[in-house]
Design a binder for these strands. Structure first.
Lengths: 154, 154
DNA sequence: ATTAATGCAAACGGTTTGCACTACT
DNA sequence: AGTAGTGCAAACCGTTTGCATTAAT
């Protein structure tokens, strides 16, 4: 699938400050922390996760600030949220390349599903129902190959 | 009680009692209430929903009992749970015919996705990743045809 | 008589809120 | 100075748990 490498400077973590200010919003230490954490994120984390990671960087981090900032960043289109298998908010970073998630129920690993992998689904649903699928909210669970072999039933 | 006829006779709400007893479990008034509510359910409800509906039938209903019974019923394969767009537990009834859900972000309506509609997706993912999709946990969001026309953007 | 199931009430975990305070601009 | 953002603490909501009690078998 047309994957861009992820370590490639996501086209503007440094622009975040600017984009905030452009809206009259502010670039604070706490936001710097969160954005730093997000920049080092492979793609998907829960809100609670982010709180924890921020606390690792700055132990004075408070949940409310993190969640409020995530809201702001979502407004800017910098993060998006979906919902994980256990129902927690799950944020993913810069869904510039729209993608969904594939999660193994057993090992809890998560993979990304790119647009072309989901294309047939998207097309089928579009055709049958006139329904436009929001790929970035797509979250599929099941059992990965490794786990399928590892456990006959489970 | 059974004021309504089971118009589609879901092949065995009446067997539930038997199946419970077969496992040494008990058929209580509270379980009768919940099962009654489930029998009158179109397909998907949140846990909290079920608590509420049970309370409509029997105002003395307690959440704990409902949730505990749902667990038991899930063990029996009578209900399954997935997660809704807002992250709440969402139960659906007798997924004998395995299906997922399609939800419009705007009007919040929900439709079922049958196995054949999802077949191409399931096949593609199976082929590409060796991943077995659990269709009953599949929950897709987007924008339905009506809403897409109704609102140009947003 | 067993022992599964209940009701209560409190605890939980993640997220949200009100408010006075802090600090970016 | 002015107002966006913060921290705190408490509220929130759906769900889970411990425990003494009730009731199905």
């Amino acid at each position: 699938m047309g994957a861009r490498s992820m370590d490639e400077a996501p086209a503007g973590w440094d622009e975040v400050a600017t984009r905030l200010r452009a809206r009259g919003l502010r670039w604070t230490a706490q936001r710097r922390t969160l954005v730093g954490v997000l920049a080092g994120t492979s793609g998907h984390v829960t809100g609670a996760d982010l709180v924890e990671r921020c606390r690792a960087v700055d132990p004075t981090t408070t949940p409310s600030t993190v969640y409020r900032t995530l809201d702001v960043l979502e407004d800017l289109g910098i993060v998006r949220h979906a919902h994980g298998a256990d129902g927690r908010e799950e944020f993913h970073v810069r869904p510039a390349a729209d993608h969904g998630h594939l999660r193994c129920d057993r090992c809890l690993q998560v993979w990304e599903i790119g647009p072309d992998e989901a294309r047939s689904l998207v097309a089928a649903i579009e055709a049958a129902r006139g329904f436009t699928v929001d790929l970035s909210h797509l979250s599929i669970s099941g059992r990965c190959a490794a786990c399928r072999e590892a456990s006959p039933r489970g």
